[in-house]
Nucleic acid binder design. Structure first.
Length: 900
RNA sequence: GCCGGGAUGGCGGAAUUGGUAGACGCAGCGGACUCAAAAUCCGCCGCCGCGAGGUGUGGGGGUUCGAGUCCCCCUCCCGGCACCA
């Protein structure tokens, strides 16, 4: 009779034991290597979603594996608790955001606990707690003192839906990153952090992160966007009401100063002052400018968009030649980058070339391929020039031949021609000489341009960390003194959608000026929530030994013990913003002597999204109606191939739209709670690990979940069966089939250990299944001494599986008498003696094609194997009428007989 | 358009350095047990072919005794982006 797999009881009781014994409490221990494993903390939105389950299971598997390998593991958890959803919920339910947030935290914490994660809950924090955000405020004041934080009034991105300012990074294609609303421009004072001051370091230190995915580093480097060039001015005498515009200088930035002698026009952005002036007397131009401003900002459109422009009729003076250069308005020039104006060299720039051809602007070639440089491809196929220092020596480069007139535009580096005194100079020399000449005329110099902008952190929102500033009529903006921190956010406000409720809280606003003592007003702006998440990992790592986190210091010596995070796990969606801000914040804290690390996250794992089927149907009205997967049944043909799907309710077909991320609108979400309730935490965890490698997307599958559950049931039943036998030790000598079963177990373990170290958990789960198949077979064959092999194999299986399915493995570990606590067990290692074979099966190939196999002694030498293979009966027919040219022996693998 | 990453059975996915393609699971098919069903267990399962055999990792070429893996060209898919001067 089969014993039921009572997952509810065993999961509950195991979790209670862990709670009672404080099993996952982490204290520094110098005798062991530390392993700080961190998953990105969740926003307490109400309940966990599948992405959380996947994220935290990956972290937990890594934590538990390292713990059993002898590391001193810290795995904390907390809550990214400030933010807009709480305010939106408040508007809807008339509940204060604080209450909503704390309720959600309580529920989600219960869910996390029910998944059995090995978390040190004594280090739990929520960013909306004054004990935490006090230190946001404190560090902000330090930054203010050092000029890293400053106030300015600037045109900002205003999200009309959220009624707040957005950082440049939070504007995607002209729309708010959260709301998708079209962003408006508004002038508003706010506080900024000088992240651009760290741009070079943030770029350089990416090289210190070999444990980060390459693509994340590329994304960050692109975002920082360093470009080295020359900033210089064309001069002019263009006046508006007698007032010289921009002091008579049209500034431009170029990375190709070597082409300056080829300038045939300038192009300015639609918002440029020269454009504005010219438009005033030219309605046609005004209309064009309006069109440019409305132009699509969608990336895909823009890439294929026609380059358009219009002559302003204005001219400026070339700083080196003194020639008059016409000024055009171009739809491809952006006011927000560089100077909002460019010099145009059609001969050596793709866009300028296209533009000049279209409008008949002259094209003047001033660069030719240099010595050893070859024109690559034809016409428009421009591959980048070889890296600097390579002197352009391409493999197989033929001796230099003249390239009198390369196809234009020629955009690679070369040698100046047609450029007076610069003729013959290569790129570097020409840029140096030209920059020097411009500098001598006070009309320019070398400059580095960054795409990265300073980080605006002011938000006109209630549910965030108050900015600790007091506005005094006498003294201006006065920082709140340290001893008055934290500036506490009142927790009983209920936003009604009409702006920041703090503006109506007299008890919050009214205060006395710390400087002059007169009545003053508090700042009501709060900080961007990316501030909160920029250092939470360091706070987790501070000492909590006394009784919780210190209120005396932001971080302490223990922070430096645990940091940096050895493994950070989270979604790719944070590849730029959160990770860049955290890196910046760490560098600021380091510069202030608060911490001793350069980079907060040594290794980064970006887990893939969780997808599910999307089913839909066109409605009569032309809309699209979505159906949840459980309302739909797949239709197969006789081979099991899916041919369609139908709705259970009406038996009519529905459209299968492929796989997509789980979302409410597509109705394809699966609630983790239902999964846990029906199958248990171990099944949920196992399926998450089994279905795909961590970095790839994971496709939801109900039958996959059932398969995972079925496997754990088999583990349980096998454990139960073993427990009815009296324990036996592994015998000293094994017969052939038991030895081979044991070899299967140990070689599977060897592979699993390799896979664990490369974080490929799906094949570790497979290995566990394979191992169960092996021990079940041993049991079924029931040869003498089977029990010893089965017990050893099962003890390996339980330990190997325990990071993924910790409850069932702990329960069986104890039940079978292997030990009291599997957490204290050592990680299994394959025994080399179990892996050796006396006889090896070799594959025989003829001309690389599989033709047979044979068994040889382990000790057989090469020539013996060769002659055995050639003499093997099953391949004789392939050797008839041909002669054996040679025989290749790959040890332990195969023999290839080459004939011809 | 540019930069990354991909493409392997009906499906999810395996295959350390080039060495038996398809591990493990799902789905499917057949069988056992059952009055029956569920559950469970056993077997089959890339494609073509009765079979011998042929063929097969998006397509085409190449290197090699041997290519999913390396090189060249092409197609498609997914992510990211900056018309960045």
């Amino acid at each position: 009779m089969q014993q039921q797999y009572p997952f509810r009881e065993i999961e509950q009781s195991t979790q209670q034991q862990w709670d009672k014994s404080n099993a996952f409490r982490a204290e520094p221990d110098q005798s062991k290597p530390k392993y700080y494993c961190l998953s990105m903390f969740p926003y307490p939105s109400g309940k966990l979603h599948m992405g959380h389950v996947r994220n935290y299971t990956i972290g937990d598997v890594l934590s538990r594996y390292h713990r059993m390998k002898g590391f001193n593991v810290l795995q904390p958890m907390g809550w990214d608790a400030f933010g807009l959803p709480a305010e939106n919920a408040a508007i809807q339910n008339k509940v204060p955001p604080a209450q909503w947030t704390y309720d959600n935290i309580a529920y989600m914490k219960k869910q996390l606990k029910s998944l059995g994660f090995a978390i040190d809950w004594s280090r739990e924090l929520a960013t909306c707690q004054p004990e935490y955000y006090k230190w946001n405020q404190w560090l902000f004041l330090r930054m203010l003192e050092k000029g890293i934080a400053y106030k300015k009034t600037q045109v900002v991105n205003w999200d009309p839906v959220d009624q707040t300012v957005l950082a440049n990074e939070q504007v995607i294609d002209g729309r708010g990153w959260r709301t998708g609303a079209l962003v408006e421009k508004r002038e508003i004072p706010g506080y900024y952090l000088n992240i651009t001051g760290h741009a070079q370091q943030l770029l350089d230190d990416l090289d210190k992160l070999p444990g980060w995915p390459e693509r994340v580093k590329t994304m960050q480097a692109n975002w920082i966007g360093k470009s080295v060039g020359v900033r210089f001015a064309f001069t002019h005498d263009i006046r508006d009401n007698g007032q010289l515009i921009d002091d008579g200088k049209l500034w431009v930035f170029t990375t190709r100063a070597d082409t300056i002698m080829g300038v045939t026009f300038c192009a300015v952005a639609a918002e440029h002052p020269l454009a504005t002036l010219a438009a005033r007397s030219n309605p046609e131009l005004a209309a064009f400018i309006d069109k440019c401003k409305q132009g699509s900002v969608m990336e895909a459109d823009i890439a294929t968009m026609e380059k358009e422009g219009m002559d302003t009729g204005l001219t400026v003076t070339h700083p080196l030649t003194g020639e008059q250069v016409p000024v055009w308005v171009g739809n491809y020039v952006l006011m927000s980058y560089g100077e909002g104006a460019v010099m145009a060299v059609p001969a050596h720039d793709e866009r300028d070339f296209e533009f000049a051809k279209k409008y008949g602007v002259p094209i003047k070639a001033v660069i030719q391929p240099g010595e050893g440089e070859r024109e690559k491809g034809e016409g428009k196929n421009h591959t980048p020039s070889p890296p600097a220092g390579g002197e352009g020596r391409g493999e197989g480069a033929s001796p230099f031949t003249l390239h009198p007139s390369p196809a234009l535009p020629f955009v690679e580096h070369g040698v100046c021609v047609n450029s007076d005194k610069y003729d013959g100079l290569n790129y570097e020399a020409a840029v140096d000489a030209i920059a020097a000449d411009l500098k001598a005329k006070s009309l320019g110099d070398k400059q580095v341009n960054w795409r990265l902008r300073d980080w605006g952190i002011s938000r006109q929102r209630y549910w965030g960390c108050p900015i600790p500033i007091i506005h005094c009529d006498n003294c201006g903006d006065v920082p709140v003194p340290d001893d008055q921190l934290p500036v506490k956010l009142p927790e009983d406000c209920v936003p009604d959608g009409s702006g920041n409720p703090l503006n109506k809280r007299e008890d919050f606003i009214n205060c006395t000026c710390p400087k002059c003592g007169k009545p003053a007003k508090r700042e009501t702006d709060t900080m961007d929530t990316f501030v909160d998440s920029s250092w939470y990992y360091a706070r987790y790592a501070t000492s909590t030994a006394a009784s919780g986190f210190s209120d005396k210091a932001m971080v302490d010596a223990e922070t430096n013990h645990w940091m940096p995070v050895d493994q950070y796990i989270g979604g790719i969606e944070h590849a730029i913003l959160h990770l860049l801000y955290s890196r910046f914040w760490s560098k600021v804290m380091r510069d202030m002597g608060l911490v001793n690390y350069d980079e907060p996250f040594a290794n980064l794992l970006t887990q893939g999204m969780v997808l599910n089927h999307i089913f839909s149907r066109r409605t009569d009205k032309g809309g699209i109606e979505y159906f949840a997967p459980e309302e739909v049944e797949l239709v197969h043909d006789e081979h099991g191939k899916v041919t369609g799907a139908k709705l259970l309710a009406d038996n009519q077909p529905v459209d299968f739209q492929g796989m997509g991320t789980m979302s409410k609108s597509k109705r394809n979400g699966v609630d983790p709670q239902a999964l846990i309730d029906q199958y248990g935490a171990d099944t949920a965890r196992f399926f998450m690990m089994f279905a795909a490698p961590p970095e790839q997307t994971l496709e939801w599958s109900d039958s996959g979940v059932e398969g995972s559950h079925r496997f754990l049931k088999r583990v349980w039943n096998f454990g139960h069966a073993l427990s009815t036998e009296a324990p036996t030790e592994l015998p000293a000598k094994l017969n052939g089939s038991l030895a081979s079963a044991r070899r299967e177990i140990h070689s599977t373990l060897k592979q699993a250990n390799y896979d664990l170290d490369r974080q490929q958990f799906n094949t570790v789960a497979s290995a566990a299944m394979k191992m169960l198949n092996a021990v079940e077979k041993v049991q079924k064959d029931a040869e003498a001494d089977w029990l010893g092999v089965a017990r050893e194999g099962f003890s390996i299986l339980l330990r190997m599986l325990s990071p993924i399915a910790p409850h069932i493995t702990q329960t069986l570990w104890k039940k079978l008498g292997y030990g009291d606590d599997i957490l204290q067990a050592t990680w299994p290692q394959p025994e080399e003696s179990a892996l050796v074979q006396d006889e090896i099966e070799l594959v025989i190939q003829v001309n690389g094609k599989l033709r047979g196999s044979m068994t040889v002694a382990r000790t057989a030498d090469k020539s013996a194997i060769e002659s055995m293979a050639v003499a093997h009966p099953s391949i004789q027919k392939y050797l008839e009428g041909v002669s054996v040219r040679k025989v290749i022996v790959v040890p332990n693998k195969l023999v290839n007989i080459v004939v011809g």
